[in-house]
């Protein structure tokens, strides 16, 4: 109470001044409609300006909260964007599979996948795909590029990922086929000698083939449809017994730059496998 009295004692001159000034101004303001309107307009404008300043100050102090809210919103939108990008990428992959499919592939199912990681500088190279057993991936599925260039075969699957054994793996082996100028098919074996990531070996090529550099070798396997290219003959040689050719094949696919791939499932692969086993008994 004492402090309050002291406070008023200190500012009473100001209070008296404001009181008398207020009385005089009020008297003047209400003296005529003109002064009333004018002073009302001025005080409204001043009040508005002060209110605006107060609002600006309040807005300034609310900025950190607004920033936090915006950051949360940006994070939410970023998550949605990434999700939509994944959907679009998945749709594009599916469209790649559709493009790669042709009528002669009726016994095959095509789906798309993306390379998660790969190696190309070892003797036993591998490619990891972002699709696994949960996406209907199976062992022994064929893998090719959207341009129908041979990549390899699926050798194992987890729930979300698959491992592909590519041509550039010294354990890799598949059948090949040369088609000569009169559409005769000549079969061969495709392997890799671990000398170059850009080349494979074709062996056991019949001596009846009118072999030449630049000839195309396709995959010949029940796991892959027709027309999947391994590469072209860069050089060839005949064995010492003069019974077969072997050729150095320039690979059609660049194994170190494979990104999107088409995974091929042979519908009748199990049936063929059973048939071969029965025949071997």
């Amino acid at each position: 109470m004492h402090r309050l009295v002291e406070f008023f004692r200190r500012i009473y001159v100001v209070l008296i001044f404001l009181l008398l000034e207020g009385i005089a101004l009020w008297q003047y303001a209400t003296s005529s409609p003109y002064t009333e309107a004018k002073i009302f307009a001025r005080t409204t404008a001043i009040g508005g300006a002060i209110s605006g300043m107060v609002s600006d100050v309040e807005h300034f102090f609310s900025l950190p909260e607004e920033n936090r809210r915006l950051t949360r919103r940006v994070a939410e939108l970023e998550a949605v964007r990434v999700q939509e990008e994944e959907i679009i990428a998945s749709m594009m992959l599916d469209s790649l599979a559709l493009k790669a499919y042709s009528e002669q592939d009726a016994n095959f199912r095509f789906s798309a996948a993306r390379v998660s990681s790969s190696t190309s500088n070892r003797k036993r190279n591998y490619i990891i795909l972002d699709r696994g057993a949960g996406d209907c991936m199976k062992v022994n599925m064929g893998v090719m590029t959207p341009e129908r260039y041979m990549v390899g075969y699926v050798t194992s699957c987890s729930e979300h990922y698959s491992v592909v054994e590519p041509i550039i793996n010294d354990k890799f082996s598949t059948g090949g086929r040369l088609i000569d100028s009169v559409a005769n098919n000549f079969y061969c074996s495709i392997t890799w000698d671990a000398k170059s990531r850009y080349h494979a070996l074709a062996s056991d090529i019949s001596v009846n083939v009118d072999i030449a550099e630049g000839m195309t070798i396709e995959v010949s396997s029940e796991r892959m449809p027709r027309g999947v290219v391994v590469g072209t003959i860069e050089s060839y040689d005949i064995n010492s017994a003069q019974t077969a050719y072997s050729a150095r094949v320039k690979l059609a696919a660049d194994m170190s730059a494979v990104d999107n791939v088409i995974v091929v499932e042979s519908v009748h692969y199990d049936e063929i496998g059973t048939l071969i086993k029965d025949d071997e008994k």
């Binding site: 001044f17 009385i23 005089a24 009020w26 003047y28 003296s31 005529s32």
Partner: peptide
């Protein structure tokens, strides 16, 4: 002044700030 000249508070309102 206001009473004498009909200032209606104008004279007082403008003279008070001079005092301050």
């Amino acid at each position: 002044m206001d009473i004498s000249l009909g200032g209606e508070g104008l004279y007082a309102a403008t003279l008070l700030p001079i005092a301050v």
